[in-house]
Amino acid sequence: MTAQLTEQDVDRFASDWRTWHREHEERLADPHGFLAVTGLHWLSEEPRRFPDAPGTWTTGPDGVAVVLAEGEELVVDGAAIHGEHRFGPIPERGGVLAVWGDAVIEVAKRGGNDIVRPRHPGHPLRTGFRGTPAYEPDARWAVPGRYIAFPEPRPTTVGAAVEGLQHVYDAPGRIEFELDGRRLSLTAFNGHAPGTLSVLFTDETSGVTTYAANRALQIDAPGPGGEVVVDFNRAANLPCAYTDFATCPLPPAENRLPVVVEAGEKIPHERG
């Protein structure tokens, strides 16, 4: 593929990649992004206070609740709350952000468990972020593929970065492609935007030069014949590559590629 590109094409390809990588890092290092998370607190019916969030927290059949002490305040949906506040049941992979000074308190459900995950802009992991090392972009790692939809979305259970936790996703189909002369496929999940796809995978670089647990690829919506481009240059680390306070999903077993993919993001400095 590279031989067919002009020098201008190669420069544009590299420039587009650098823009993508910069924007990806900016989202990660947002004042309330994952690098700002200071704790992962699992809720139960037993009231608990946490050092990095106000209030006493519980959960139960009626959902998450917090009781704020005198002088404590949270802002939820623009409204200041005091005393007791009930967030109610939170859907899986859903969440509410409550503002506390310059911090944000994330109240969410992951793997069927209600959690509180405070995000403080001054957390040293965020303030000391130096960027993420990555392979230089190379167009040979952007390979054509074909998306094949399953007759019905296939419920797929995967592990998580947190031991004992599981996630269940509906996989709408798989992506077939060829790499280094080998025919391969990846189970795909739905992407963030309608029609797009998301892929979790590992390969023979995982645990060597790239993060061991997973990397993620976002795939544009397939063409009318299922045509897609699998651009491994944009293989990105998930938050669990940086912090132990993330509950990221692991790839399905069939997405462990038996090839070396020297493209995309490498092991973060924070895990080096």
Rank of each mutant, 00 (worst) to 15 (best):
A193L: 13
Y147A: 07
R183A: 13
T38F: 02
G223Y: 02
R256K: 04
T38V: 05
G63H: 06
A65N: 03
L186H: 14
V158T: 07
A14T: 07
D16R: 12
A134M: 00
Y211L: 00
W141M: 02
E152A: 15
A80T: 14
D102I: 07
P194V: 00
T59N: 11
I90N: 08
H192T: 13
G207K: 12
D180G: 10
L184Y: 01
H82P: 09
D102R: 15
A29N: 11
G225A: 05
W42P: 01
F232C: 04
G264Y: 07
L179A: 13
D9E: 15
D77N: 15
R93D: 15
P194F: 00
Q8W: 06
R130I: 01
L28H: 03
F232D: 04
G101Y: 13
A103Q: 14
T132E: 03
T196L: 00
D30F: 08
E270Y: 01
T56D: 01
A193P: 06
A188C: 15
R12Q: 15
A253F: 09
R27N: 14
G55A: 02
T187L: 12
N237M: 08
D114R: 09
V158A: 05
V10E: 15
A134W: 12
A193V: 05
V228R: 10
H120N: 03
G191C: 03
A134F: 04
T38I: 05
